[in-house]
Design a protein around this nucleic acid. Structure first.
Lengths: 301, 301
DNA sequence: GCTTCATGATGAATCCTCTTCATCCTCTGA
DNA sequence: TCAGAGGATGAAGAGGATTCATCATGAAGC
């Protein structure tokens, strides 16, 4: 393929501003030109792409599906270049934030929202650190962490972000609609949880739901919830997983929650070392995490 | 700060082409303009930045330090936007490659070279997957993997990339120059290696080097070699680590290898599932990994 | 050592692109 | 129904990017 044809970058920039402000006029103000100029630029971009990137109704500017793809790419792309240029023009300690979280949360929740994070704290270089073990918040390597557990964390500033639950999920293709359908399902288990708090477990779930007589010994076993989710999406069976980790799959409809019974889980916490100054960016990030995690319908898909 | 002033994107694009080709003329050919136009663009960019990004001698165009920073950002940034635009213009299965590796190798070797990887396989969306456990190469989640071990891997196509050794490193500030200096050093240990092959271990090293009488029980203990390296850089002591994971720190001079004795390690392998078609991109990636890993002096810093 | 060639820098002129202006369109709210 | 806000559209003009012509520099060749 190698059709390395770049889109007109000026037009991309104009589009990015429009999408961010949801307004031609505001974007024009930012770029110090007239709204007309923006309109022409966006039109040129749309001609290049062959698709509309913005739905314009006279009082509302919205992204189309294609627009959303380009907007995220433009946020990351232009941000990367702008930050490098700023670093060159004004050398000095760049604002960087190292965020640590569990591997699952990082890959299944955080990474799909990177463009959004970059939008709310655009001047910060975000480094991500994945580890399911302890992290050293006072050692200078990691600044802030999203941890899963009971909390609070003595010696650290922590904020509770959202209460998690373990829920039963499977592919909609399986056609599971009630407890009775479980008998014909394969069970997906997640092993190797050496954590001190209750983990998603079919035996516990059955006890909770008052269900008996299921053969739980058979089924698929994974050591990571990540793979368990992948297997569930592929229609391999029913899994019990943290709801936070599957919100995107649920709102995309590639996974469904057919059963009402959920197991109580722990909560996600936002933890900072005492040493980390409570900068505006850290607060912004914390508040954004809080609201985004509490919003059930995710805007990702 | 929030000095969100973007550099002129057209000029960035011209610069990126020049840096990639190491030639104004070639860049001009690619962008279908005259070399003069490129020259003016680059000059404009340099005026904006206030720094030279290219050292021009009549027969040689090289990046300055600032140029290298911008070039990497531009590769990633423009690539991101271009790929999104291509995806919109020609919808369909995007070429994506999921690469799995150990957490340490990913963060300490692969991530610093992402811009380079994007340059050699520009049309591919690279997804990275870090895990120290097993990965399912035939399950459709991961396409290729860089694994550390004895190899070969039955059932998979594997290529040996580079032989690793465990070497003793510390900060140059410690002033260690021979075995005798070890007596006044703190030792940094990496625990929790449940791998079946020999792990870096001070006791084994002492045996190998014929050194006795050191008190190895004291010192710092980490569960991840990543943190061990960080501690060594911070001057907290001497560590035994995989040389591959510290090549950048060594060539930057923030770590030194004061002692000649090394422990034999295993090798890094490039592994693909049989299911993965041997695409040109996979071959390119494999060859690039091979040569880059064998080149001791890294071009990153 | 001089010439030749290839590459890039520089400044003025030109060309063309992007912006603007004027006008029209659509929807909202009074 | 009418005003107002926000955006679309097409022609005209300003300003910036490109080009041309010329100069500078160093490598290769005799």
């Amino acid at each position: 393929m190698k059709l390395n044809q770049m889109p007109p970058m000026a037009a991309v920039r104009a589009f990015e501003a429009v999408a961010r402000h949801a307004s031609f006029k505001a974007a024009a103000g930012e770029l110090m030109v007239t709204p007309t100029a923006i309109s022409h630029q966006v039109r040129q971009l749309e001609e290049f792409l062959g698709v509309r990137v913005l739905n314009r109704s006279p009082r509302l500017v919205e992204l189309t599906a294609a627009g959303k793809v380009l907007f995220d790419a433009a946020t990351i792309g232009l941000g990367e270049i702008t930050r490098a240029a700023a670093e060159i023009r004004y050398p000095g300690p760049t604002k960087a934030l190292t965020l640590s979280s569990t591997i699952s949360f990082l890959s299944q929740w955080l990474v799909p929202r990177l463009a959004e994070i970059q939008r709310i704290i655009p001047d910060v270089t975000l480094r991500l650190h994945a580890s399911d073990g302890m992290v050293d918040l006072d050692g200078g390597v990691v600044d802030v962490a999203v941890r899963y557990g009971r909390g609070p964390y003595p010696g650290f500033d922590s904020t509770r972000l959202v209460q998690d639950v373990f829920t039963v999920v499977c592919s909609p293709k399986l056609g599971v609609s009630g407890v009775d359908d479980l008998i014909r399902c394969r069970f997906i288990h997640v092993d190797g949880q050496t954590v001190p708090y209750p983990s998603p477990d079919w035996a516990r779930w059955c006890h909770h739901a008052g269900v008996a007589g299921l053969d739980l010994s058979a089924g698929l076993r994974f050591t990571s919830s990540l793979h368990a989710v992948q297997a569930a999406i592929a229609g391999q069976g029913v899994a019990i997983v943290s709801r936070v980790l599957v919100v995107d799959a649920l709102s995309a409809g590639i996974l469904v929650e057919p059963l009402a019974t959920v197991l109580p889980g722990e909560a996600y916490h936002f933890v900072t070392g005492r040493a980390v100054e409570r900068s505006a960016e850290v607060s912004t990030l914390r508040e954004w995490l809080k609201t985004s995690l509490m919003t059930p319908g995710s805007p990702i898909f």
